[in-house]
């Protein structure tokens, strides 16, 4: 049996092992050295960053965490980076979600970014956690005209009517920007359809701005909405790494001498296992094709030889 034939019938568990090594070895190396690859922002990421940068002081930003622990590997670094950026600009932050498993992820983000890095910020005045609401797009339909009808209490059970920073919020149109972290349904598409699109006609005054961070599976499907209905988009872990680099650079520029904690390089660190995982995928596809075509050719030659035999 030739090498190619052996490879053709190889036990798939060897491929699994290769994938495990391709991902884990770079994690160990980058984890020990702390080194990351340089990142340059792609247009969708850059426009997301620029949209937040262009907001005036005192802007109100709604951060919708529509994901769960299953996709946190991709989206949590984006959530951290977005929150850091928004918090560093001293915008008012409103956290909410349409995904039942997301509230602990919101609390985690608030703890690691706001409580740890911006202890001067006051709950209810500078940021609020509105928690989860059931109903998917139906919630969006309600909050597009009456925010407090759907989000009656915050995650702690406090009525929103007694939260100071909720006083000016009547509907989603009162936000200057919506940031959505989306792992599927309901997510970015629904925010585009129910919240942003109705404001594009001009009948509602100003157009509502939406920026999103989406999983790899969703990214290609959301691109058609950019840049009109979606002002910016972080596509998968690469988008997160690019955005993280942009935020870190802008914070270091604003605060010379600032040392960025390694906690905030998570996505950039992940680009190492990503690189080797992708290289393995490409190699496997090429190898699979080489085997296929060489066997086809060999089969073809054999058939020809058979046919030419009297």
């Amino acid at each position: 049996m030739s090498l190619l034939e052996r490879l053709d019938i190889i036990d798939r568990r060897w491929i699994f092992l290769l994938m495990a090594l391709a991902v884990s070895i770079p994690i160990i190396v980058s984890g020990m050295t702390g080194k990351t690859f340089p990142e340059s922002a792609t247009p969708t990421t850059q426009t997301a960053f620029d949209t937040i940068e262009s907001l005036p002081a005192g802007s109100k930003v709604l951060l919708a965490f529509d994901f769960d622990p299953a996709s946190a590997g991709e989206l949590q670094p984006m959530a951290i980076a977005f929150t850091r950026h928004v918090a560093s600009r001293d915008f008012d932050m409103y956290f909410a979600t349409l995904w039942a498993p997301a509230p602990p992820l919101i609390i985690e983000t608030i703890k690691s970014v706001i409580v740890a890095g911006h202890p001067h910020m006051v709950y209810g005045v500078d940021y609020v956690n509105l928690g989860f609401q059931a109903g998917n797009e139906s919630v969006l339909k309600v909050i597009s005209t009456d925010f407090k009808q759907s989000f009656t209490v915050d995650a702690r059970g406090t009525p929103v009517t007694s939260i100071p920073m909720m006083a000016d919020i009547k509907s989603t149109e009162d936000f200057d920007l919506i940031i959505n972290l989306s792992a599927g349904y309901p997510g970015c598409k629904e925010w585009v359809q129910y919240i942003v699109s109705p404001t594009l006609s001009g009948d509602h005054g100003t157009e509502l701005k939406l920026v999103a961070g989406v999983t790899g599976v969703q990214a290609p499907q959301m691109v058609p909405y950019w840049p009109r209905q979606l002002k910016g988009m972080l596509a998968a872990i690469k988008g997160a790494a690019e955005y993280e680099a942009l935020v870190n650079a802008s914070l270091m520029e604003a605060n010379p001498g600032l040392i960025i904690s390694p906690v905030f390089n998570e996505a950039q660190r992940r680009m190492a296992p990503q690189l080797f995982g992708h290289l393995l995928m490409v190699s496997l596809i090429i190898l699979g094709n080489v085997i296929h075509f060489s066997r086809k050719r060999a089969g073809g030659t054999a058939v020809k030889a058979l046919r030419s035999t009297p």
Partner: peptide, 14 residues
């Protein structure tokens, strides 16, 4: 991730 790799090796043909 593992199953995508295996499937790509076995079925992704030009």
């Amino acid at each position: 991730a593992f199953f995508v790799a295996s499937a790509a090796f076995r079925a992704f043909r030009a």
